[in-house]
Every structure is written in C-alpha cells, then in structure tokens.
C-alpha cells in the first residue's frame, strides 16, 4: 500500500496519469502471449543471477560484481561461438559455449573473491571495480578485434549464423533451453541448501567464520567457492543472452540484470523459494516499462523506481516484524 502511494505520488509529480501508467505496465507485460514470452526472456537471466547470489549471501558476501560476471560469461560464450562459425559441428560449439560462459563468469568472480580473502579488499569495491573493467573489455572487443567487418558500431558484433542459435518459441526470442537452465539452477540450489553438507558449511561460515575455522574448515576457501558458483550462474546468464536472445555480443549485453538480481534476492528475503516469483514480477515491470516513453512520454526508469520502492518497503516490513528480535548482521 505504501509502495502504491509512493509511486502514485511520483507519477503525479511527473505529471503523468497514474492509473493509465499502471494499466500500461500491466498490459505491456501480461497483455498477450508475446508479451509473456518477453517477460520470460527477461526472467531467465534475472533468475540465474539471483540464484547465484543466494550462495554469496548465504556466506555473508556482497557479490556486487554480478554484472561483470555476466559480461565475462557472454564474452567467453562469444569466443567459443566465433570459433564455431563455418565449422561442420555447430552443435558442438553451441553446447561448449555454456561451460565456457560459466567458466568466464566463475573466473571473474574468483578474482573478486581472491581480492577479498587474500588481498583484504572489500568485495563491494573489488566487484564494482571489476564490473567496470569487464565493461571496458567488452567495449574494446566490440570496437576492436571482434568488430563487424567494415564498421565498428554500438550495435555489436556481426550476428552468428542461425545454426549457432538456441531454439526459440516462434515470434519471441525466448529459448526453452534458457528456461530449462534457470529452472535447473533453482532445483540444484534448493537441493544444495536443504540436503548437502556444502550448503550447511556456507551458512555456518557466513554466520560465524571463527567457529568454522575451529572445526577445521577454511572459511576463505568456501568464500571463493561461493563466489565462483555465483559467477558461474551469472556467466550462464550471459551465455543465454548471447546464444539465445541477441545472437551476437552487444555493448549492453548485461542489461543491468546483475544489479537488479541483487534487489530480487533482497525482496525475496534471501529465500530461494521466493526468487522465481519475485524475478517474474521484476521482469514484468521491466518489460511493461518499455512502452511508457512511447505512450505517456515518461521515462522507462519508472520500473526501477517501483522495484526499489518495493525492496525498501520489504526491508521496513522485515524490521517491523522482528522489532523485538536481534537485527541481522551486516549482510
């Protein structure tokens, strides 16, 4: 309710009819099968990134570098796919692109993890710095070695031939493999957290690193492992964007999903069960927001404002509910 009031106030401040804007958001995201397909296309990378973040939050790390990890995943996937152009075994390269993407994201996250555990650099600054570095590498590749023959442009590298694309539902750029990948990531994570020893150690190391050390485990090593896992999921998201959605490498390949995934996990209150629903809601807002500038002449960043307001409201609500309890440690 408070969120609704806040957003309506913001809309009135911008001089836009609030009800019409909400209607557009709804119609633009769930109004037709095609729109729902677009929402799911955004849901896949968002869910993959958010699932990865569950691991790092569990061990009390702020993996702010998801954006860069996703970019490096996309870069690695593109490298493999470029290799596969004009080969006789396109399927082999298409499949190989995904482990490569996970490797790219994982390595990039490992960089931030090592800076944290060995170098003593706070993971927020390490991750953020690496995000910008990854963006630099991406632009360098698009404008330099991987540029479209003849012209280098913001529209990205030359598109891959169709045999290197993931399949897609007709009319939209949604690939069933991507949805399957996101669903599998969710399932694996549920299993990990509920039944595996590793999931337990992550949680223990996050809550009390000293105790874990006394039990003969090395918290630093688990921190790096959690980072690598998170990075691998983010890298996969990047791979899906390249092979399934854009079919080439573009400058905005990560589309801010890395940062948005952090909000998704926070609004889910760090619980894996809520992640798919929250990611779906955020994807709706993002896709629905695309129409706002054309119809109402207001900026599409309204979606971001609503998302932020929701997370803030959730933070307030959680604080309200455990007013008597212990405040959570800095996550």
């Amino acid at each position: 309710m408070a969120v609704f009031g806040f957003t309506t106030g913001i809309l009135m401040l911008a001089g836009a009819p609030p009800m019409e804007a909400y209607g557009l958001l709804l119609k633009g995201s769930l109004g037709s099968g095609k729109k729902v397909g677009a929402v799911l296309t955004a849901w896949v990378p968002l869910t993959l990134c958010a699932v990865g973040l569950l691991y790092t939050f569990r061990i009390a790390l702020w993996n702010i570098g998801v954006e860069g990890q996703m970019i490096m995943g996309a870069v690695f996937a593109t490298a493999v796919l470029r290799w596969g152009v004009e080969s006789r075994l396109p399927l082999f390269y298409l499949i190989l692109a995904f482990p490569a993407a996970a490797l790219g994201g994982g390595l990039w996250a490992m960089g931030a993890g090592l800076l944290k555990t060995k170098g003593g650099v706070h993971e927020i600054f390490a991750g953020l710095g690496l995000n910008f570095v990854a963006q630099g590498i991406l632009l360098y590749l698009i404008f330099g070695p991987w540029k479209r023959p003849g012209v280098a442009s913001m529209s990205g590298t030359a598109p891959f031939p169709p045999e290197l694309w993931l399949s897609s539902v007709s009319g939209v750029r949604l690939s069933p493999e991507g949805v399957f990948l996101a669903a599998a990531a969710l399932a694996v994570t549920v299993w990990m957290f509920r039944y595996s020893r590793l999931g337990l150690v992550f949680k223990a190391a996050g809550n009390n690193p000293t105790a874990v050390m006394l039990f003969g485990e090395k918290p630093g090593r688990y921190m790096i492992l959690a980072m690598v896992l998170a990075g691998a999921f983010a890298g996969l998201a990047g791979g899906v964007q390249v092979a399934g959605v854009y079919h080439r490498l573009i400058p905005s390949i990560s589309s801010n999903y890395g940062y948005l995934a952090l909000l998704v996990v926070m609004l889910s209150n760090y619980r894996v069960a809520l992640v798919p629903a929250v990611a779906f809601f955020f994807a709706c807002l993002n896709v629905g927001g695309i129409q706002l500038p054309m119809v109402l002449k207001i900026d599409s960043s309204l979606a971001g404002v609503i998302q932020g307001a929701w997370v803030l409201a959730a933070l307030a609500a959680v604080a309200w509910l455990r007013k008597e309890g212990r405040p959570e440690e800095a996550r």
Binding site: L263, M266, S301, G304, V305, Q307, G308
Partner: peptide, 12 residues
C-alpha cells in the same frame, strides 16, 4: 537499494 532507486528516480 537507495543508490539504484535514487538513480532511476533521477532519470524518471
């Protein structure tokens, strides 16, 4: 959260 929200609010 505030850094993302304030940025989007500024653009909006």
């Amino acid at each position: 959260v505030l850094t993302l929200t304030a940025r989007d609010l500024a653009y909006f």
